[in-house]
């Protein structure tokens, strides 16, 4: 992955197992968001291969739109469509990508919003929702397509502290239900509680990875030690 001459990611080689929750941490500018955006090719990797659920998404002629609907993504700034209701946000891809009739799409949207605790907000517009509710609606929008994997790009960074818990609870529920997840975040407590594996990135490379207990308690590299000490204080 590179922007012009600036190489952002180098030698990233990881496997994510089904139902695994992989947590990616690292200082800003370390390439974690870029790594995540390569996973559904919102960014184009210059070289290398990315395989999701047995399908190479970097192959020439890969059907990106078909692949993407099986890779859910949640963004730092929610990116809900402001001109559509919460239900409309969830239903858009159901209608236009999967071609579901309106009534069926509505039922799926109700179920997805119910799953994130927003059943009663289906007809509310994003500007009538709190930040935490907006992010949960965005999670419902991705979930409704029944993705095989969910990518979270700093899902709680734009939230007021008191709203973070609701979003993390939804993510913990997803983990319990067996969803495969890659999470870029600074919520270290959540990482310790829910992650199967933590990856520490810096300068576009994976510095080290391991079970959260090991990586936080006993980091092997100096850069990891410095970062863990910083975020824990």
């Amino acid at each position: 992955m590179s922007y012009g001459k600036l190489e952002v990611l180098r030698g990233i080689d990881i496997d994510v197992m089904p139902s695994e929750l992989v947590f990616v941490i690292g200082p800003s500018g370390s390439g974690k968001s870029t790594f995540l955006r390569c996973c559904n090719r919102l960014e184009e990797p210059a070289t290398g291969e990315i395989i999701v659920d047995g399908t190479s998404i970097t192959a020439r002629g890969a059907d990106l739109n078909a692949i993407r609907r099986r890779i859910g993504m949640v963004f730092q700034s929610f990116n809900l469509y402001p001109h559509l209701t919460a239900g409309g946000n969830v239903m858009l891809a159901l209608r236009k990508v999967l071609g579901k009739p309106k009534a069926e799409a509505r039922l799926i949207a109700e179920a997805a919003l119910d799953r994130v605790g927003l059943a009663d907000k289906i007809d509310n517009y994003p500007n009538q929702l709190s930040g935490g509710q907006q992010q949960r609606a965005a999670i419902a929008r991705a979930l409704a397509l029944e993705p095989k994997i969910m990518l979270f790009d700093e899902p709680t960074s734009a939230l007021d502290p008191e709203l973070v818990g609701d979003v993390l609870n939804v993510m913990a529920e997803l983990k319990k239900a067996g969803m495969t997840m890659v999470v870029v975040s600074h919520e270290m407590r959540f990482a310790k509680a829910a992650a199967d594996r933590v990856i520490f990135m810096d300068g576009g490379v994976i510095v080290e990875q391991g079970a959260p207990a090991d990586l936080f308690a006993n980091p092997q590299h100096q850069r990891t030690r410095d970062f863990v000490r910083q975020v824990e204080h």
Partner: peptide, 16 residues
């Protein structure tokens, strides 16, 4: 650009 990111990530084409 976040709107495009969100839309494309759910499988909508550039035209859609």
């Amino acid at each position: 650009s976040g709107q495009t990111d969100a839309s494309r990530s759910t499988g909508l084409s550039a035209t859609q």
